[in-house]
Simulated assay, not measured.
Amino acid sequence: MDASAFRAWIAEAARLVIDNTDHLTHLDAAIGDADHGVNMRRGFRAAVALLDETVPATPAAVLDAVGRTLISKIGGASGPLYGTAFRQAAKALGEEPAVPAERLGAALHAALAGVQRLGAAKEGDKTMVDALAAAVSAYQAVVSSGGGLAGATRAAADAAERGLQATVAMQARKGRASYLGPRTIGHEDPGAASAVLIMRALATTAGKEVT
Rank of each mutant, 00 (worst) to 15 (best):
L70G: 05
V48D: 11
A57L: 05
A113P: 03
A121P: 03
A131W: 07
P97D: 13
G79I: 00
V55C: 12
R103T: 12
A49I: 03
R41V: 05
V129N: 11
V48Q: 14
R117V: 09
K126W: 06
L93I: 02
E95S: 15
I74N: 12
R42S: 08
P56A: 02
V62T: 06
S72Q: 09
L132D: 08
S72L: 14
R68G: 15
A61D: 08
T54W: 03
V62L: 10
G43A: 13
V129W: 00
T127R: 08
A65T: 04
D52H: 06
A77D: 08
E95Y: 04
G75I: 00
L70S: 05
G105R: 11
V129M: 08
E96W: 03
G32Q: 06
K126D: 12
Q116E: 14
D52R: 08
T84H: 03
R45I: 15
A57M: 07
P100Q: 09
E53R: 14
L108K: 07
A47N: 01
R103N: 09
K91P: 07
G83F: 06
V115T: 08
R117Q: 13
A110K: 10
R41P: 02
V48R: 14
G76S: 09
A90G: 13
T127D: 03
A131E: 14
P59M: 02
V38M: 15
L63V: 10
A134D: 13
D125W: 00
T58L: 06
P59Q: 05
A57Y: 00
V129F: 01
I74W: 02
L51E: 11
A106V: 02
A47T: 11
G79F: 00
A113M: 13
A90V: 12
F44R: 15
K73D: 14
P100S: 04
A92P: 04
A34S: 06
T127Q: 11
L63E: 06
K73Q: 14
A46N: 06
P80K: 03
I71R: 15
P59R: 02
A57C: 08
K122M: 10
A98H: 10
V55H: 15
A134E: 13
G105A: 08
A131V: 06
A121L: 05
L81C: 09
E123K: 12
V136W: 05
